[in-house]
């Protein structure tokens, strides 16, 4: 069985990242010939299971208790660790969010099982341990870029269960399987799982901000890398994005250098985007960055380096200085737009 740990949004809906994982989990479960279950822990969940069935969830496990919302580590740890012990899933998938990245490692430590963070792809396959001369079938391949981005590692947990992985929002596609999919729901008695010690950390204030920058849904993204050179030069990208009706994205290097806000970061440790048009300005194209944008419709690369890896996946390459090319693009667009 595959288990998805579902996160909730502020207004009590299932978070997108969890629905994306349900879609992925459904296809993996079908491939394995097994079921898909989802755990939801929250407060006043009403008939939240109905949000999950269309994604192919066979069984929803629901724990409804005031102590479970907003998220805190220990109460959710108590629920999820116990549910995993009871139901023995082969695979547990969680969002690589502030919640999933807080909870998953504690669970993996408790169950002494393997966990891979920030996977960009999940597949099923076999694994041969040559030193033990042992063959394992139906293993979860947890695939992620590693170390400096020059390599892609395929990680497996042959001996321990569950096989655990976290995945960032937007990496998997959210797709309804069947609007009328028939699943069932089990209500868990939260008070059976929660102890007084689970209240050790108390939330005394929360300031939730609306996401100001929404690059995930932008259809045109003008994105800048370290090669843009400065925060001032990034201003040009904002101008181009504005005339095109798009948003500005950035690489991790550009964010780390202070050229752009963290919310704009695209890539394995940022947001994954699939815009109609992606204009990569001064971006060399490390694999972690490409993992977050290579599904874009059309890619334009503007770079002084003809050998930049990004050029290999670009539909159009302009070898030139961003500071010269971007203003020309703006001028040409203003001339040609309808």
């Amino acid at each position: 069985m595959i288990l998805i740990y579902c996160e909730l949004t502020e207004n009590g809906q299932i978070a997108d990242v969890s629905l994306e994982l349900c879609t992925k989990g459904r296809s993996l479960a079908t491939q394995l010939g097994t079921g898909l279950e989802a755990l939801v822990c929250g407060n006043q969940l009403k008939d939240i299971e109905k949000q999950l069935y269309p994604f192919g969830v066979d069984q929803v496990l629901k724990a409804d208790d005031a102590r479970l919302f907003p998220y805190r580590t220990l109460p959710h740890f108590a629920l999820l660790s116990q549910v995993v012990k009871e139901r023995k899933p082969d695979v547990v998938l969680m969002g690589a969010t502030c919640v999933g990245r807080d909870l998953a490692p504690r669970i993996a430590s408790h169950l002494r099982c393997g966990l891979t963070a920030d996977c960009t792809s999940l597949e099923i396959g076999s694994y041969e341990d040559k030193s033990k001369n042992k063959q394992y079938d139906n293993i979860l391949y947890q695939i992620r870029p590693a170390f400096g981005g020059n390599i892609i590692a395929t990680i497996v947990n042959p001996e321990t269960r569950p096989q655990m992985a976290t995945v960032r929002e937007g990496v998997m596609k959210k797709e309804i399987l069947d609007q009328n999919y028939k699943g069932s729901c089990i209500q868990l008695d939260a008070s059976k799982y929660l102890k007084k010690e689970d209240e050790a950390v108390r939330i005394i204030a929360r300031e939730i901000e609306q996401r100001k920058i929404n690059i995930k849904n932008a259809s045109i993204i003008v994105s800048g890398g370290y090669g843009v050179g400065s925060r001032e030069n990034f201003e040009m990208l904002h101008q181009l994005a504005q005339v095109l009706g798009g948003e500005v994205g950035a690489t991790r290097a550009a964010v780390d250098a202070g050229f752009a806000e963290g919310d704009r970061q695209i890539g394995q440790t940022g947001v994954t985007v699939r815009p109609k048009l992606y204009i990569a300005c001064g971006i060399s194209g490390a694999v972690q960055h490409r993992a977050g944008m290579d599904q874009s419709g059309k890619i334009i690369s503007i770079n002084t380096d003809p050998e930049a890896p990004i050029n290999a996946i670009a539909d159009y390459t302009i070898i030139g200085d961003v500071c010269k090319v971007v203003p020309q693009l703006i001028a040409c667009y203003n001339k040609n737009k309808k």
């Binding site: 393997g114 020059n150 390599i151 892609i152 990680i155 947990n157 290999a312 996946i313 390459t317």
Partner: peptide, 18 residues
């Protein structure tokens, strides 16, 4: 518990870009 099954060098699927 985690084992590295394989490490791939990143091979770029080269697009016929313009």
């Amino acid at each position: 518990p985690t084992k590295v099954k394989k490490i791939d060098n990143v091979v770029l699927a080269h697009k016929e870009g313009v």
